[in-house]
């Protein structure tokens, strides 16, 4: 299912954060959302998830997000916020199981099918071996992977993830991105994921959307968007850019002088 935004404008306590944004994430695509702090990445993800009201239209397939009930949204769009709260010492299994809430009838427990989906989600983010541990006792990176598994277990055609890779070790950053690619493959899901690691974004995302000051500064394939010019204009950095067999390699080398 395709998720689109047309001229999305959002105000947060009177200040305009998004100035008319167009985004289009097709099924099968993993789209990376890049931009400096305060560019509006999280706000855009929240607006797409229907968490904050905004002007403009968010479309899910051929329907508008506004026309969907909360329960329907829960079965169509999973949202993984940056806030990694786990309020109670639930076991990892239980945390991931809560991802099945939108699919469960009132008062019903998890079906064998639900449990299989949760198990698969835990394997995607490499937390299956932690299943019985209280989630609150895990390290920050492990908790992040557990919460990502929770969002994956929601099994929705659209997944919006806000910095899912931050705080993860390099191997698990790539595990996470590989999981997103697998989940998107065969046009099963449309995935929009905000990232700060440029190389991670360049190598694992099909397309990149770069935000700056609440506007789309660049949009396209990693090759098209991650150029010395855009990195200077959007992030104010110089970078060493190279490529190998699998894609781009980017390393920030310094701060660009003020123009």
């Amino acid at each position: 299912m395709r998720i689109t935004a047309k001229s999305l404008k959002t105000k947060l306590s009177g200040r305009t954060v998004l100035h008319g944004i167009d985004v289009d994430v097709a099924p099968g695509a993993v789209v990376g959302l890049l931009g400096p702090n305060g560019a509006g990445k999280s706000t855009l993800l929240r607006a797409l998830a229907g968490q904050i009201s905004s002007e403009g239209v968010v479309g899910l397939g051929d329907r508008s997000l506004d026309a969907l009930s909360l329960a329907e949204r829960g079965r169509l769009v999973a949202y993984l916020p940056q806030d990694r709260t786990i309020g109670w010492p639930l076991s990892v299994e239980k945390v991931v199981g809560l991802g099945r809430l939108p699919w469960r009838a009132f008062g019903k427990g998890l079906s064998p099918e639900d449990l299989a989906i949760c198990r698969a989600a835990m394997e995607e983010t490499d937390v299956a071996h932690l299943a019985a541990r209280p989630a609150t006792e895990l390290s920050g990176g492990e908790q992040a992977r557990v919460l990502a598994a929770r969002a994956i277990a929601q099994d929705t055609p659209v997944l919006l993830a806000d910095e899912p890779a931050s705080g993860l070790d390099p191997a698990h950053q790539m595990t996470m991105m590989a999981a997103f690619r697998r989940l998107a493959s065969g046009k099963r899901r449309a995935i929009l994921v905000s990232l700060h690691d440029l190389t991670l974004a360049a190598r694992w995302c099909d397309r990149i959307v770069m935000l700056k000051d609440g506007r789309v500064a660049a949009e396209g394939t990693p090759e098209e968007t991650m150029t010395a010019e855009t990195l200077r204009d959007v992030f104010g950095i110089t970078a060493w850019i190279d490529r190998d067999d699998c894609g781009l390699v980017l390393a920030p080398t310094g701060l660009a002088g003020s123009p």
């Binding site: 968490q51 909360l70 079965r75 309020g87 945390v95 809560l98 929770r150």
Partner: peptide
């Protein structure tokens, strides 16, 4: 009771799980 469970992860995630 379902809303209480969903709120384990804070209000944003709870809303995204279909909680009113």
């Amino acid at each position: 009771s379902r809303a209480l469970d969903a709120l384990t992860f804070g209000e944003a995630t709870a809303a995204s799980l279909g909680t009113n």
